[in-house]
Write a protein that binds this DNA or RNA. Structure first.
Lengths: 111, 111
DNA sequence: TAATTTTATCGTATTTGTACGATAAATGAA
DNA sequence: TTCATTTATCGTACAAATACGATAAAATTA
């Protein structure tokens, strides 16, 4: 059986992995860039910029939202998205912490 | 068709996404921790620590190696792995750059 | 009210990821 | 040489991700 063993790992490892997974597709990184650069973060504008179908973009937006990296609000018939900077920064800090912790612990004993 | 449109995105986006994908599984983050903490980075020791089959661990090691995050060398019948700090740091820097660039550009106009 | 616009969701097809057991290849030990 | 140890790879099964068209839901416009 290919049942995921996610639960067997620590909260920190799961959290960092979930964050990394949210940004593991170039389209989602592109969306984060667009959200930062555009004046109004309307779904339709993102669809126009990216070479993907509307439904696919909606799916990517949903994943970013589930990961907490972006927020979304309804504006009439349109949907407005923006970056959740607090969450984004938290993950960035967590990742930097992992990197520096590992580098400090490193024994550099083989290879 | 569900053919990936990876090629439609920029090199930077693809690179960051590939890096994130390599760390998008808790087992691979755990492996990075083990490689930093253990004196000798033998495959068999990693297998003993993680709740995964030997073949599964081997697969995860292969993915980390393909992403360039770790190096591997044969030591008799054993395999020794270690973190490729140059590559790991490069990705860490790239990611920090993305974060700070986006934050600088942010217009914070909606939501 | 009726038509248009916008977006989320559904259904579906295809690809990729995850996990395991079994096996092969390589090395060291008996 | 023969046997044991170690690890990578193969085959397989199932789960999840990716992508699209079609459609439903909600709100504005005519």
């Amino acid at each position: 059986m290919a049942t995921p063993k996610t639960a067997a790992f620590s909260e920190t490892e799961q959290g960092l992995a979930a964050f990394a997974k949210a940004l593991s597709h170039p389209a989602r990184i592109a969306i984060m860039k667009i959200l930062a650069q555009q004046e109004a973060c309307i779904c339709g504008e993102i669809v126009e910029i990216l070479p993907l179908a509307q439904s696919t973009v909606s799916q990517h937006l949903k994943e970013l939202k589930n990961a907490g990296l972006i927020d979304g609000s309804v504006d009439g018939p349109k949907s407005c998205y923006c970056i959740n900077w607090k969450a984004f920064e938290k993950f960035n800090v967590d990742f930097n912490t992992l990197f520096s912790t590992l580098k400090t612990q490193d024994k550099n004993s083989c290879c």
